[in-house]
Write a protein that binds this DNA or RNA. Structure first.
Lengths: 110, 110
DNA sequence: CCAGCTATTCAGCGTTACTATGTAGTGGTA
DNA sequence: TACCACTACATAGTAACGCTGAATAGCTGG
């Protein structure tokens, strides 16, 4: 979706992935596919894996290696307590931002 | 509002400032004050000025120097046609993102 | 054996917001 | 005069993040 989306995703992509993991555990390749299904069509695989490394280092997820029927072993990520806490904060921040932007959008429409 | 906001602002702060300018022309110091009023309490002046330089270089605004009664001359920025076009794109991208995030937020709440 | 799908990793890059500091004009006040 | 506060703009250096592009590796079917 272009460069605007790239910049706008900064900071939110992390929340998006954590939100996906909050529904149920998943592995990288699966998360990438899920993102594409949800309309984020040009998010590169490399981006997702790098993000997963970061959230693992921050301690937001637990990781388990699980053999795959169709290829190399998968690294399954599941959201832990710290991750859920961070996700809550994320939604708070997001709501704050969204509220103000919606106000601006209406104002600009006048 | 912390580091999450910092990252989330990337890409959106530009849109926010353009939206402010779409209502009426303004100068840097004024824009900073307006942002603070709207709840973006810890956006530094330096951030805004740097952003104004960028949007000027991109050709989204016209600039006029206007003397001030209370200090150095002001650089008044007004949104031009290119800026309005970009702002429209911005809202499109924003809506796309917001829609998907709201969906995720609901899903996570189940 | 090779093509194609699954699955992960990483180095290098561009963009952005933040930090910290500096410059300059004006008015008030001690 | 000297000092301070407010107004107003500018900029060098830094950290964080997503993208690009490429590489590696396991498994299956023709």
């Amino acid at each position: 979706m272009g460069k605007q989306m790239t910049e706008m995703l900064k900071g939110t992509l992390e929340g998006i992935v954590l939100a996906i993991l909050s529904v149920r555990p998943a592995y990288g390749y699966e998360i990438t596919a899920r993102l594409r299904d949800q309309g984020f069509s040009d998010i590169a695989e490399g981006t997702v894996y790098a993000l997963l490394v970061r959230i693992e280092q921050k301690g937001f997820v637990d990781v388990e290696k699980v053999p795959s029927e169709k290829g190399p072993p998968r690294k399954v990520y599941s959201l832990n307590a710290a991750g859920r806490g961070f996700l809550e904060e994320f939604w708070t921040t997001w709501s704050f931002l969204a509220e103000r932007l919606e106000r601006l959008q209406v104002e600009g429409g006048k």
